[in-house]
Write a protein that binds this DNA or RNA. Structure first.
Lengths: 149, 149
DNA sequence: CAATATGGACAGGCCATCTGACTACATGTC
DNA sequence: GACATGTAGTCAGATGGCCTGTCCATATTG
């Protein structure tokens, strides 16, 4: 008889969301390390996901990612030190700086998306045909609903 | 024209899993704080989720949660200091200690599950009828597949 | 111009994890 | 029963990823 307090009765939706997320993360960031990007960590995706091709300000990145300016500056600094982004003064505003992906930054971003798709495909193979598409669709609808509260 | 590097092209499955997880967490742990459990943090769910009614050892908890013994001991210590768990020597093994939920620990565990269900219901209300059940079912199947690799 | 808002930097702190080194106890083998 | 090895837990130290508070420089607006 299993006496577990939570999981025996019912797995929480939090557990069900977090488990695949963590497995995915391990594989994606492990894969990045294996492919020559060892210094990219999950938190850095907050930068990579939101950075505009024409460059973004730290404040904008912070707001889009839901982090403080200081936290975003910390992440950007690490990416800049490792050569994934460049930071240059914004010609349009003397206070601001523009963060841009370098060639290496674009490479890591593309690799990240590719690895993510690969792991997603592997997850899909563990479900019945078509179910991963359903899952992705539902998560997308939920994200749409949550992005605009 | 949106030039975002990742999200404009396609939201990664990681993003789609993490977004609802984070919204859920904010609400569940905010709710716990509001209901008199201000010192419970998301990491503590690793203890609450895996602890057995008859008591569990730190090592067992660590293994089930996928953490090191040291990390689990750190979490257990905080919960013990706040009165959510008791820690007593294991009569069956002089090296070991048994971690048990106190009455307050049971209360927090039940409240956690209840809040989780409430937020899940709120999420469900943002989707078409029945879709949340489908989503939960698919996540459950995926979790089953990932729990036994 | 003065007042206020904004972009960013600096300092300091906390939490949640890790690794490495260690002690105390348990167990299995001879 | 003694010894070798394995296991439960602790101590110490480090790191990453966030936070708040404070401050400076530059914009913007009345």
């Amino acid at each position: 008889m299993d006496e577990r307090t939570i999981s025996a009765t019912e797995r929480t939706i939090g557990y069900l969301l977090r488990l695949p997320y963590e497995r995915l993360s391990e594989r994606v960031y492990g894969g990045l390390a294996a492919q020559g990007f060892p210094d990219i960590r999950p938190a850095h995706s907050a930068v990579l996901r939101h950075i505009a091709g024409s460059g973004s300000r730290v404040s904008d990145l912070a707001e889009r990612a839901g982090l403080t300016k200081q936290s975003m500056a910390y992440l950007v600094e690490a990416l800049a030190a490792a050569g994934y982004v460049s930071v240059a003064p914004d010609p349009a505003d003397g206070r601001a700086k523009l963060v841009r992906l370098t060639r290496r930054g674009h490479a890591v971003s593309e690799t990240l998306v590719r690895l993510s798709r690969e792991v997603e495909a592997d997850f899909a193979a563990r479900l019945a045909p078509g179910q991963m598409a359903t899952l992705r669709g539902l998560l997308g609808e939920l994200a749409d609903a949550l992005e605009r509260p």
